[in-house]
Nucleic acid binder design. Sequence first.
DNA 1: CGTCAGTAGTTGAATCGTCAAGGAGCTGGT
DNA 2: ACCAGCTCCTTGACGATTCAACTACTGACG
Lengths: 159, 159
Amino acid sequence: MTRWLTDEEQRAWRQLAAVTMLLPAALESQLQRDAGLTHFAYWVLAMLSEAPARARRMSELAALAHGSQSRLSHLVSRLEERGWVRRERADDDGRGQVAVLTDAGYDVVVAAAPGHVEEVRRLVFDALTPDQVQALHDICAAIVARLAPSPESPKSAAS
Amino acid sequence: MTRWLTDEEQRAWRQLAAVTMLLPAALESQLQRDAGLTHFAYWVLAMLSEAPARARRMSELAALAHGSQSRLSHLVSRLEERGWVRRERADDDGRGQVAVLTDAGYDVVVAAAPGHVEEVRRLVFDALTPDQVQALHDICAAIVARLAPSPESPKSAAS
DNA sequence: CGTCAGTAGTTGAATCGTCAAGGAGCTGGT
DNA sequence: ACCAGCTCCTTGACGATTCAACTACTGACG
């Protein structure tokens, strides 16, 4: 006995689906054109550029960029070939690898950031009122909570 | 002189970005597991199933599914191999092709729909109040308007 | 009519992502 | 000490997507 969507939900879903299909494509296209970067690659480089010592553990980076470890591993290999990232062994854990942003890599993010931010502003925030920005945050946070089965959130405390 | 994002915008953007990365992946994964379908493939089949005579022009279908013509063409070839869709020449326009949903294809969408809808409800609508659903619709519609450079919208009328 | 720009769609090469398998290192119980 | 099982990460094969031609047709203009 499927609970179908109401008309309002259906309408909202079609718009949301459109956003999830079109917005990433639009950002990809801008980044690809102006900086030769994937949206995912940009995000990874950005996360590295903000990190202390511009370095992060692979798994941490994968989680921050919302991608699988495998995807990240392949990407980092490509970025390494271009000389934007370097891999190092983790001191504390012999299994771990640390991705380090090189100076050349840093220059790439810094060069790509303004155009990307401009595009995000143009496509998203210029279209919204401040109240809507707030609402968007809350809505997306609620959805993300469902998507990321984080260790917190379950009801009662386990001993 | 880049106009950077305010803190509120930044927060909202991170959540929205997370949704655009995680939600499609989650839906893909459910559809792939339970029906052997891509989200895009599901959407295309769904659009066909709603159409009069279960048939649509390729370009119309591409627009409805928010994908490129090339992407659709490749997909339809794969769907054709599985016997879920058939290509026909358009009567009115010799260049055009019409994609037609076969009975087998119809059965596939009908079988996949309940699980998919359940997942959408679980991940999105169960997390939101009715007010938020309404707000989500308006927000996404505003963004989509920026993304789809529709022929209307420009300011003054051209003769 | 012929031609020429524009539209509809397909194709193939190259890129990117996923999935399943595997190497290598840590950790806890005995 | 050992070994079973776990975590971290990489790899290779495969599938899906993009990008840039390319074919085939239409419609307008002289």
